[in-house]
Nucleic acid binder design. Structure first.
Lengths: 143, 143
DNA sequence: TATTGTTATACTCTATAACTATA
DNA sequence: TATAGTTATAGAGTATAACAATA
């Protein structure tokens, strides 16, 4: 099944780039989500496709490294808003850019016409996966 | 980057199907590798894209569940040959078939012509990733 | 009562380095 | 000496269930 092989290839690019940036893949994914906008824990759990208890650990580790921070949410003292620190934003940006470069380079092998067609086909597949999965898909960490 | 979203979608299918079969994704991947042929530990490490020490643990856990077994290799008393048991083969087969079904159903949304084109483009991408990655790609567990 | 997030617990997965047995 | 595999160690990631604080 070529789809699985292609997926494995993309994941391996993602993992290797994260590694080069000193980031565990799950943290890289989370940083990319947060680069979009600060989020509360529950939101982050949904966007990353994991349980809220897992997010506590992810955020703890990233916070320990100074990549993000929790701040209070005015009006709801139960909640926390998680935001990237400047180093966290740098890391997210650099990581995202390098992943994009690698994948663009891979796609460049297709030639312009085929590449456009391929992109359209991917969009069609992603759309047909349905809105049920739309949220999960954001969890890939790149946008 | 649609490639990452597509990859995430495929991985989520892989993981959810594995889950439904009571298999951790890494074990599902390993079982699919072994469904191709029995392998020695080092071979399995290469095919799964992990270090040999990690394979010891993977095989230990799967062996405990009766999905595979280690047997001696005639002529080299250091080595072990890992083979699926009948339940292991059943699990691998059922898992692989269900993943294939799900992905085929996804691709069915494309229509016949587009699907053929898309498959050709994927093949081109996989080829252009080069033989360096050819081994890793087998590690996706489906063939 | 319901929701937000954390803690407790238990696995799986992984890498690195050191080790054993065999080649 | 070199190779095949295991063990030891450490850490990340995850889920489930129980909990505290707040709404």
């Amino acid at each position: 099944m070529a789809l699985v092989r292609l997926s494995t290839l993309v994941q391996s690019v993602f993992t290797q780039v994260a590694d080069r940036h000193g980031l565990p893949p799950s943290q890289a994914r989370m940083l990319c989500v947060l680069a979009g906008r600060p989020s509360r824990m529950a939101e982050l759990a949904r966007a990353c496709g994991v349980e809220k208890a897992a997010v506590t650990g992810l955020v703890d580790r990233a916070e320990r490294r100074g990549l993000l921070l929790r701040s209070p949410v005015p009006g709801d003292r139960r909640a926390s808003l998680v935001s990237l620190t400047p180093p966290g934003l740098s890391a997210a940006t650099a990581f995202h850019q390098e992943v994009t470069e690698h994948l663009d380079q891979l796609l460049a092998g297709l030639g312009e016409t085929d590449r456009a067609f391929f992109a359209a086909a991917m969009d069609a597949l992603l759309r047909s996966a349905g809105p049920d999965r739309a949220r999960e898909l954001q969890a890939d960490g790149t946008r």
